[in-house]
């Protein structure tokens, strides 16, 4: 078939062109930051690359904004590229390309910490400073983990905020996302222990996993409310399930009977915080986390002192602490967003 061969050829050409073009644009995009001079001296700027779990969602875009801001203020080059789905393999390809480019510092928020570990080793062998941010890869060669908030802090704040709404007692359920997401599971562990120890009249009746699918989270929350008629609380454990569970309560007309809290970005949660479908959203200063990641990158590249948190010039970051034993740089306590302050954030 002549036609089909010609079309296949055309398709192949188009595909090849697309790959080449995609390669070009990503280089152009990323090369656009730090124009200002490098105070660190030397003829080349420090390049700090960050690979998020997923590009294009408000959370990581806000981190990117913070990182870019730090790049302008501190004078380094900030590179940002992530996969369009939360896919470990696609993320690995991007990490490899940064290793190829020979960046100075590589930050990753791994989708799968275990499969990322050997790649981080590879990067270190290539002379790159490797670190994690947002999500840790504990069994890897990473030199540093920039932590948004302590596991304890988040788990307890989620529980406290929900209990405040529920009156310190009652049955609640958790709608989590990825079943293997290490940070979510660590928070859930704290919530279970903390609820058992500090709120003896409260009980977690079920933990379900909706993936990163908001509609599935809503449906599961509705199913949970139906199967547990005396359920009075729901926790959305990630930024897609937090508005998802709030939507479930709103659509079932149960506002004021079932209370929700979750880890949601302020803009997505604002309508639910205002209607009362969500009592509070627990998160942290995401742009601040991006800024701190950039700062830590410069310190790593120059073999600077990470404990020197006094040198942080960002006024919003006042509670940063460094734990040398675990090599963790902690942003501070989590932020509680309510109807009053959620509108102040543009992510």
């Amino acid at each position: 078939m002549k036609i089909s061969r010609r079309i296949t050829g055309a398709l192949a050409l188009t595909a090849a062109a697309a790959v080449v073009l995609a390669g070009c644009t990503s280089r152009n995009d990323t090369g656009s930051t730090g124009e200002s001079g490098a105070p660190e001296g030397g003829d080349e700027q420090v390049t700090v690359a960050f690979v998020p779990k997923l590009q294009g969602i408000p959370y990581f875009e806000a981190m990117n904004t913070g990182g870019q801001q730090a790049a302008e203020e501190l004078g380094f080059e900030w590179l940002y590229q992530g996969p369009t789905t939360a896919d470990a393999a696609a993320q690995a390809d991007i990490v490899r390309s940064f290793i190829q480019q020979g960046v100075d510092v590589l930050f990753v928020a791994p989708n799968d910490p275990n499969s990322m570990a050997p790649l981080l080793q590879e990067a270190q062998d290539a002379g790159i400073h490797v670190a994690t941010t947002d999500t840790d890869a504990p069994d890897s060669v990473r030199e540093l983990f920039v932590s948004q908030a302590s596991v304890q802090g988040i788990g307890e704040q989620l529980t406290d905020s929900l209990m405040e709404a529920m009156g310190g007692a009652g049955k609640y359920a958790i709608v989590s996302c990825g079943e293997t997401a290490a940070n979510l599971n660590a928070w859930i562990e704290v919530q279970e222990a903390y609820t058992a120890s500090d709120y003896p009249n409260a009980e977690i009746v079920d933990i379900v996993y909706a993936g990163e699918d908001q509609a599935a989270a809503t449906q599961m929350a509705l199913d949970l409310m139906n199967s547990n008629p005396d359920l009075t609380g729901l926790i959305g454990e990630c930024t897609s399930s937090a508005p998802g569970v709030a939507e479930a309560v709103a659509s079932a007309d149960r506002i004021g009977e079932v209370f929700t809290v979750g880890l949601g970005t302020p803009q997505a949660m604002l309508p639910y915080l205002e209607s009362g479908a969500s009592s509070a959203s627990i998160l942290w200063d995401v742009e601040g986390l991006g800024w701190l990641t950039g700062w830590a990158g410069v310190q790593l590249a120059n073999d600077g002192d990470l404990g020197d948190t006094a040198s942080i010039t960002n006024e919003a970051l006042t509670d940063v602490s460094y734990d040398e034993a675990t090599s963790e740089l902690l942003l501070g306590p989590p932020t509680v967003f309510t109807a009053d302050n959620a509108g102040d954030y543009d992510y």
Partner: peptide, 17 residues
């Protein structure tokens, strides 16, 4: 229908799967 059943925020995961 997905817009109507979703929240007031639409993200790129819409339709996925």
């Amino acid at each position: 229908m997905m817009i109507a059943t979703g929240t007031s925020t639409l993200d790129q995961s819409v339709g996925s799967g």
